[in-house]
């Protein structure tokens, strides 16, 4: 079940995942988060947020085909 979505990894999450992007299948953002944490245990140490199609997620959301999910560690600009 689920749909295929594109995952983008940034900052420390990119190092923890060992890649900058990939395709994964999930039906909502909560199950996706769990799947990503299981796949990359090193991400557990990073308090990351997620963006869905460039907008910060504030709660759970259903996923649609071709959605873009970004894994965002705490911002460090400035």
């Amino acid at each position: 079940m689920g749909v295929e979505v594109r995952i983008l990894y940034f900052g420390a999450a990119q190092e923890a995942a060992g890649k900058s992007e990939e395709l994964l299948t999930a039906d909502n953002t909560t199950t996706l988060r769990t799947a990503i944490l299981e796949k990359y245990p090193a991400l557990a140490g990073i308090p990351f947020r997620m963006a869905l199609n460039r907008n910060l997620l504030k709660g759970d959301s259903l996923l649609a085909e071709n959605d873009i999910i970004a894994i965002l560690p705490p911002f460090q600009g400035g």
Partner: peptide, 14 residues
Amino acid sequence: TLEMVKEKLPVWKK
């Protein structure tokens, strides 16, 4: 603006 840049801009450093 500076405080919001630090809070909101998706930028990371190494």
